[in-house]
């Protein structure tokens, strides 16, 4: 696939390892870069907004994206409390990218998964969630064929108009290995971003997360095939139905309560 004129920007964040909590290359962001490299090769631009990391581990984490074979990375310097969405949107408005790739959600910080949505809203672009691949880009018609990841390995092919924002799912191709040499030698092109205070966040109250009660998974499978299916299945929708009428609704609720053994 050659898309010489296509402009693709991949947004990257500093990830966090789930067990050691050490900074690392975020898994989804790395997949976004892998996808971007597949689309436009060396022309892929990468962007990170945040405080300039003074911690060596954080710098290494950020540089590990460069180790995937990128010559440079744009770094928008902003205070920790600033609103990254506004900073990035401001920057991207001047760039006119055709495709903006992000992860589905960050591994640290707010980790709300809202950034791609808010960004698309600010830029007036389409937003495609959880993509596994971009199959082709038709620059003449300004359209792209995108593969969206659904649970249980299902895929949905979408035709999306350029420009668009896409969040890259874990189902996308594994990122290539990050090499130490290029990572150390790559350029971090730093620019000081405008100061956009996150007014909303300042009003929030934070408290520690509590463990929610979790339904025990009772597997009644009889055969190995069933057990395999149960072990590999992701929760999926499709079980619900729309019920009209008071009688039927009440009956449906009662049936559920009986089924759960609560009545």
């Amino acid at each position: 696939m050659t898309n010489d004129n296509l402009s693709v920007i991949s947004l990257v964040s500093i990830g966090e390892h789930p067990t050691s909590r050490r900074p690392r290359r975020a898994e989804q962001d790395a997949r976004a870069i892998e996808l971007g490299i597949k689309l436009v090769g060396e022309n892929l631009q990468t962007l990170h907004a945040g405080e300039l990391p003074d911690d060596a581990n954080q710098q290494t984490a950020l540089r590990s994206y460069l180790g995937m074979g990128l010559a440079e990375m744009n770094l928008l310097e902003m205070p920790a409390q600033a609103d990254a969405v506004l900073v990035i949107a401001e920057h991207l408005k001047q760039q006119n990218p055709d495709v903006i790739l992000t992860g589905v959600r960050a591994e640290s910080g707010e980790s709300s998964g809202m950034l791609p949505y808010l960004l698309a809203e600010h830029l007036g672009m389409a937003m495609v969630t959880s993509i596994a691949d971009i199959l082709s880009v038709d620059e003449a018609n300004q359209q792209a064929e995108v593969l969206q990841a659904l649970p249980r390995g299902q895929r949905r092919k979408l035709i999306v108009d350029l420009p668009f924002v896409a969040s890259v799912d874990m189902a996308a191709a594994m990122p290539r290995q990050s090499a130490f040499g290029p990572a150390m030698r790559g350029l971090l092109d730093t620019a000081v971003a405008g100061d956009f205070a996150d007014e909303e966040a300042s009003t929030w109250q934070t408290s520690n997360a509590k463990k929610r009660p979790k339904r025990l998974k009772i597997i009644k499978a009889k055969t190995a095939a069933d057990r395999f299916k149960a072990a590999t299945a992701k929760a999926s929708g499709g079980g619900g139905k729309v019920v009209h009428g008071v009688e039927e609704s009440a009956q449906a609720i009662l049936d559920l309560l009986v089924e759960e053994g609560l009545v």
Binding site: H17, S20, T60, G67, R176, Q177, A179, F180, G181, P182
Partner: peptide
């Protein structure tokens, strides 16, 4: 191969990432 090309075969890449993140 590993430090310039990032082409450690097999599970190499995963193992090296683990060593970085968890020792």
């Amino acid at each position: 191969e590993t430090m310039e090309k990032g082409q450690t075969p097999g599970k190499g890449s995963e193992i090296l990432e683990n060593l970085s993140a968890t020792d």
